[in-house]
Write a protein that binds this DNA or RNA. Structure first.
Lengths: 342, 342
DNA sequence: CGGAACTATGAATGCGCATACATTGCCAGG
DNA sequence: CCTGGCAATGTATGCGCATTCATAGTTCCG
């Protein structure tokens, strides 16, 4: 069954609302009403229609519905990667909120490149989503233009900006970096380094950390860029490079651009027989669920990814309904969680 | 901008192919042709049409296109969770293959419940996808019926079965469990336990491991079910319970239902000052990218998630085009990767 | 008991596009 | 010089539904 592809599909007597109506002895409109607002249909009619739906296995055609009503009940979401836990939790919250409200999520990965993002934006807009979510606040001019032209609510998630396309929900990455630096200094560290992924926001956190740390201590901050995505191995390699280089020879604190990288740093320290935080201290970023269970538990910057995702979805939905505010920036902040690793 | 929702949208002179055509001095059909097959349009005409597209910011309406052509270029995918790395890598490969072929992926999380899955199936079918991907081979009768009725290619991924809805791409979880048991016995372990997530496939691996291990050694296999999703903390708790209980007091090997849980077991051992694999050995499942970088490196069962995702997508696409085979089962197997943890 | 106010339904229409078919003009071969 | 054939375009139509507007039947109150 289902084999040949076109074969059946062509001759198949497709089941539409008209088919269902014919069986139930009503017109197509009444079927439509019965499905979208049962209270508008007489009880007996409703029963017959439902029986006909079951008998035929009717599945409404949302494409036709969306075309006619100009409401697709689709929200599109563009993220750099779904294999990245940081985004996964946020997407999960975002998607769940949408689903609860009767919307579906059209998800695409865009990688890091703005060109790929622009292409994805156009592709998604062609599906006529009722709203769109983008990751970050950096987009190509073409993408911005297309989004504005689409005239739908657009949320930029995971960062904030003074000039969002529509509105943004996030936190200041620079402030997060500064806060980590201030914490490190308060803990007494006078040497520091940064392990960071190749990502615009991670670079901003790193720069802010470095300049704040330098301002407070006068010490240069060494850094070790990761090649490719953050991973345990990349984190290990990052710390390894720092320990073997001049920057962190005598110990100090390492600020990592993600908890995964930090976990890698912990692993490298363990492999080298170094004690954390005595020989080298580690600060992560994200407060993933595993951060509390590492050995030692990870000091990190908590970002409420669930809340970010949920708020973004709620605001989008409100604006779709026309009940939204005109607020353009939601700064949800972050929190430094001091555990044992730094 | 984009604020009020309906306001602009109602009066806006929507840009359609007819609009573009009017500006370019041709009819709607010619615009359609210019966009879908430029070779069918005279060079000069093409130029004028492209200019008009740029000038108006025209974005084709894929809903209308899909309705008219009965091809949505959408493939829907249902997974238990995207926050689970195991699935994330597979989805990534699956989605990338689709994207390269000009299809988009409509993704939903269904959790573990067949009822939720059935609901999601209906919702997805209403978007008239050209094909569908499901995780696993266990589905409600209603879901199977709906899928068969939809008459589209359906792949069941991450497991195999003799009676798939259409075809499946995966491997035998029972065999994987047996292989782990045989490896453990070959390594000389005579005591074993299992830490497993609350997931039907994980339970099958566990049962196969336990019965094979018992058959080979005569020893009972203790187990520790995880509550909720696999995580570092859950893995730690799992090993902790085993070590404090009677089952694994004197050491032995622990087969975990995922690499993440195994990583938790390693962390618990580290926290207790136990040496791995001497005091307790650990076998993971999945060979996630981090498995090679843990301390010690993780012995695990490798499953080529990329290949699974890619093959599923390719087969689906072939069947959409009508060039597919009638094969119903692709068993891609697995491989035991011996590293230092067991 | 007569019409206002509902309630329950149907007929007509169009969303924006792809597709089948028709038309026009032009060139080549006989 | 005529015709067959191809290139380039247009006309007509319908995908399956939501949305108006219209129409019967019902109820209610003065």
């Amino acid at each position: 069954m289902t084999a040949g592809g076109q074969d059946n599909r062509d001759k198949a007597q497709r089941v539409t609302m008209a088919t269902v109506g014919r069986i139930a002895g009503v017109s197509q409109v009444t079927v439509s009403r019965a499905l979208s607002d049962p209270s508008k249909v007489a009880p007996g009619t409703l029963r017959r229609i439902r029986a006909a739906v079951d008998a035929t296995g009717f599945v409404p055609n949302a494409l036709a519905g969306a075309l006619a009503s100009r409401r697709s009940h689709l929200v599109s979401a563009l993220v750099p990667s779904i294999a990245n836990l940081t985004y996964a939790a946020m997407i999960h919250a975002f998607g769940s909120s949408l689903r609860d409200a009767g919307y579906q999520m059209l998800l695409s990965e865009t990688g890091a490149s703005p060109e790929a993002e622009e292409h994805a934006v156009r592709l998604h807009l062609s599906r006529r989503p009722d709203a769109m979510m983008l990751t970050g606040v950096t987009h190509s001019a073409g993408a911005r233009r297309a989004l504005i032209g689409a005239d739908i609510p657009v949320v930029e998630l995971w960062d904030i900006s003074e000039s969002p396309v529509d509105f943004c929900v996030g936190f200041s990455h620079a402030e997060a970096g500064r806060a980590a630096a201030e914490f490190a200094v308060a803990q007494g560290y006078r040497r520091a380094a940064v392990i960071y992924a190749d990502d615009e926001r991670a670079r901003r956190r790193k720069a802010a950390f470095a300049s704040r740390f330098a301002a407070l201590t006068g010490a240069e901050v060494a850094d070790s860029p990761l090649h490719g995505a953050a991973s345990l191995g990349a984190g290990r390699a990052g710390l390894s490079a720092l320990l073997d280089g001049p920057g962190l020879g005598g110990g100090g604190v390492v600020f990592c651009s993600s908890d995964v990288a930090a976990q890698g740093a912990l692993a490298e320290a363990q492999a080298r027989g170094l004690s954390v935080p005595r020989d080298v201290a580690v600060i992560g970023f994200g407060d993933q669920d595993f951060a509390v269970d590492t050995v030692p538990p990870l000091t990190t910057v908590r970002v409420d990814r669930e809340r970010l995702g949920r708020l973004a979805a709620q605001q989008l939905l409100a604006r779709i309904e026309g009940t939204g505010t005109t607020e353009t920036k939601y700064d949800l902040g972050f929190e430094l969680i001091a555990r044992a690793s730094a």
